[in-house]
Design a protein around this nucleic acid. Sequence first.
DNA 1: GGTGCGATTGCA
DNA 2: GCAATCGCACCA
Length: 190
Amino acid sequence: MASRTRILRRFYRRDTLEVARDLLGCVLCRRVSPGLVLRGRIVEVEAYDGPDDRASHAHRGKTGRNAPMFAAGGIAYVYRIYGVHHCLNVVTGPRDYPAAVLLRATEPPLAGRSASGPGLLCRAYDIDQGLDGCSLAGRELWLEKGPAIANRQLRRTPRIGVDYAGAWARRAYRFVARGHPAASGPKRMR
DNA sequence: GGTGCGATTGCA
DNA sequence: GCAATCGCACCA
């Protein structure tokens, strides 16, 4: 049985890029019923770091939607996108510093349930806005330590789908387990 | 109160 | 290549 060490709040209240890198290999855990916990290793994430990051929802200040990003690290930020899908973020850093890490892909939590891409990930783990703002060390949703991803297995690329963000779009804020079959995005980005 | 669009996905 | 589909940000 793999170790099931739950990740503590202080893990998230650090530099966002460091948290993003360290989240690779960690295990996303979601209780979908009293008797069933879905688990999957995180293999792809993106950092959204601070008020100046033009790709971030927070770059125009605090709003109703992005308020969880301004809380202290260790909670979820879940939003709806295109009216169709949900995206799950891990809020990072200290209070009043808006930052989060988007979880883009994990290993499939169940056979036949793809978690490659942020929308599919939320579908796979039954995550919607009901979990917005909830603790990442709670009963419904939490993370555990997992087998680390070695530096040579790690790849950094620009973030996906943020071309509007100018120079910020070119920053290497996406972290992916190199060549992992569950990673999303264009082939050349894996 | 009206309008435009998105940190995506799946199908033509 | 593009439709789906709607909450939210922004402007009036």
